[in-house]
Design a protein around this nucleic acid. Structure first.
Length: 648
RNA sequence: GCUGACGUAGCUCAAUUGGCAGAGCACCUGAUUUGUAAUCAGGCGGUUGCGAGUUCGAUUCUCGCCGUCAGCUCCA
């Protein structure tokens, strides 16, 4: 082993120090003040703390509070501070893991009785004390027997120690004041670095994520370097609650759920309008290159045995009792794929027809476990904008590009952007390795030919093939998995799908499974939250509300509504015996894009005074000729404009 | 499915240690006919999720079931 390591500083200068030198000493040699500002260092992009001896050289950067890589270090330390506080107040608590996560950190504890909200508040107060006591994080490297002695009272840590099978692997502990944890690091220098944090919730979690193991109590929290960043984060959480589709779905009268049909949606008149508009939109986009079909909802189990679902997916299927046989021989379909194969099999196909794209909006049922159900994002009954492409192997690249553009273009029309994830073979799968090699290789090559960047999700593919997932980020920065492109060599084999090639011989097509919205239910949930219920005009269930000021204008207003409706606008009349103020307030609450007020002046001039959603209270509505207003709303609807313009 | 919390009028929420179940909004009726973010008055509305148990008495305590929520597991 080389006795020295070479560090390359950002300015290109090289620094050679003995192996085992602490980064803190290197930073001090650059500058005392830098040491005070330093949170950690980065060596060839790998973050390490100031008290971990240098073992290799490379590009050396000092990370301060301004560097994004520093935040997980702070949060990981916050988790230790939490554990320190919990151990002080609840010495019986056994410690599990406490990592930094995307929005903060958590720590798992094994306790005999779960934490209460009061406990959480007490822990947070105790954490405050631990930070004020400014304990340094002290790193120690120990051997396995020593580690076993040190964590003799912590069964979860002992189990973790069993994983250390490579004697060369370094086992380290971090100590802050009274608390010692088995931990790889990195950490901030002392508990005093943690200033702006908050505990958010506690819930149970399986030890090591395994549902067969015991449940631990997990406490979630978040931490930031700056106070305003913490406040902004907490504000975003509050905003997210206001946008919650379950809340807005009720307030805007879009849908309801009922205990008699758990996991299934009752769409109200408004919600159904919205739903149908989305289906229409997808239909319109799929008019040219796709073939829409409808297939049965209920199938004999023979189909599921052939598809492999009976073995792998039966738990999630709703079985239907056959009265004659007294057996559960039928099942509601949980996906459309097999029915599309049956349609494909009904005819002989020429290579000239391919790619052949079947699309279906049929209702699907999946018997999700009760605990998984959640609003519209996780339901038992839903519909996908499902597509199965039958194609020749040499068409994969072009098809993947076509579908990727199709999907991303769809999201763009809502102002949503997506990140791509490439998912490879899972543990539970059908087909041999040769098939998977081939499928992964061709899908990956196709993905790369699109020139778009993507992340790798190892082992996350479908059981019949690798896939590209499209994770959409909403206006609050939260990611949702919606669209998918899945390459399938297995099912063409199982269902003996064929086409006749140019050579007049029989060939095996490849199948691509594609969804864009994921499900309409989930997509609508995301749209509700993305737009905070303020849908663009083309999607708004009620586009225009007409308000006559008094009874004198009621007839004129009704006639104007008629003209709007005749022109294709979803307009309604509110001539209730209420004050104008009241009706304007309600229209605003319902997030109607345009409210047209009609008083004597407007009635005489065939005009409307247009209130535009979002222009705020006390806006000065400009009078617009009725015909002009109608034309503007129609244009806005046709172009599917994302922002309101007709009122301007 | 697992852990925990919760379930009161259509909605949002109240109801001392177990002692007559309330308010605002919505809805209905009347007055008012309104020029831009909730006009006034009156009224209707409940087997407190369902079912047992303890008790003189249960919204309140106990148990079971159903549902919802936060997570975990799973997932479009």
């Amino acid at each position: 082993m080389d006795a020295d390591v070479t560090l390359v500083l950002p300015d290109g200068a090289e620094k050679v120090v003995p192996t085992g030198t602490l980064p803190a000493d290197v930073v001090r040699s650059i500058g005392e003040r830098l040491l005070l500002a330093a949170v950690a260092v980065s060596i060839d992009g790998e973050v390490q703390d100031l008290m971990t001896p240098l073992r290799k050289g490379g590009a050396f950067r000092v990370l301060t509070e301004r560097d994004a890589e520093s935040l997980p270090v702070l949060r990981h330390s916050a988790a230790h501070v939490l554990a320190t506080a919990v151990r002080r107040l609840r010495p019986d608590a056994k410690i599990g893991f406490g990592p930094a996560i995307d929005d903060g950190f958590y720590y798992d504890f094994e306790v005999t009785s779960p934490f209460t909200p009061d406990d959480i508040a007490a822990f947070e107060a105790e954490m405050r004390r631990v930070t004020q006591e400014k304990y340094p994080f002290v790193r120690a490297e120990v051997d396995l027997p020593e580690a076993r002695v040190r964590f003799a009272d912590d069964p979860l840590k002992l189990e973790r120690l069993d994983d250390f099978t490579d004697p060369a692997e370094i086992i380290s502990t971090y100590t802050d004041g009274p608390f010692v944890d088995l931990c790889r690091g990195p950490h901030v220098t002392d508990t005093g670095r943690l200033k702006h944090f908050k505990l958010l919730s506690s819930a149970a979690a399986y030890w090591r994520g395994d549902e067969k193991r015991q449940m631990l109590q997990r406490i979630y929290g978040t931490a930031f370097f700056k106070k305003d960043e913490l406040e902004q984060h907490l504000f975003r959480i509050e905003e997210a609650k206001k946008r919650d589709h379950r809340r807005l779905g009720k307030e805007l009268d879009l849908f309801m759920l009922h205990p008699y049909a758990p996991g299934a949606t009752f769409w109200t008149e408004r919600g159904t309008t919205l739903y149908n508009l989305l289906v229409d939109f997808v239909r319109e986009r799929q008019q040219r290159n796709f073939a829409e079909i409808k297939t049965p909802l209920l199938y004999n189990k023979a189909l599921w045995e052939q598809s492999g679902h009976w073995g792998k997916y039966k738990e999630n299927m709703f079985l239907v009792l056959d009265n004659e046989s007294g057996e559960h021989e039928f099942s509601l379909k949980p996906m459309n794929c097999p029915s599309h194969y049956l349609m494909y099999l009904a005819k002989k196909h020429s290579y000239r027809e391919l790619p052949k794209r079947f699309v279906t909006f049929d209702v699907l049922h999946r018997n999700e476990v009760t605990g998984a159900l959640s609003g519209l994002t996780r339901v038992r009954q839903f519909a996908q904008d499902d597509c199965h492409v039958f194609l020749r192997e040499d068409q994969i690249t072009e098809e993947v590009k076509f579908l990727t553009d199709f999907i991303l273009g769809y999201y763009e029309s809502f102002g949503l952007s997506a990140t791509l994830k490439f998912a490879t073979r899972p543990e539970q799968r059908v087909g041999d390795d040769a098939m998977w090699d081939r499928a992964e290789q061709s899908l990956r090559a196709a993905l790369e030919s699109t020139g778009r960047s993507y992340e790798l999700k190892e082992g996350d593919g479908a059981f019949y093939g690798p896939k590209i997932d499209f994770d959409v980020t909403d206006s609050l920065g939260r990611a949702w998995q919606l669209g998918t492109i899945q390459l399938d060599y297995a099912n063409p084999e199982r269902f003996d799908l064929t086409y006749t090639g140019e050579d007049n011989a029989t060939h095996r097509p490849v199948v691509i499974h594609r969804a864009v919205s994921g499900s309409f239910e989930r997509f609508i949930a995301i749209l509700i939250e993305h737009f905070a219920g303020a849908f663009p005009t083309w999607l708004a269930p009620e586009q225009v509300r007409v308000l006559p000021i008094s009874l004198d204008q009621a007839a004129v207003a009704a006639a104007i509504v008629e003209r709007m409706v005749a022109a294709g606008i979803r307009a309604s009349l509110d001539d209730r015996n209420e004050t104008l103020k009241y009706r304007v307030a309600e229209g605003a609450r319902m997030k109607v894009p345009y409210m047209c007020v009609i008083g004597r002046r407007e009635a005489d001039a065939d005009q409307v005074a247009v209130n535009t959603r979002g222009a705020g209270e006390g806006q000065k509505p400009a009078p617009v000729a009725v015909e002009d207003f109608i034309a503007r709303v129609i244009a806005e609807t046709k172009t599917r404009a994302l922002s309101l313009t007709a009122g301007a």
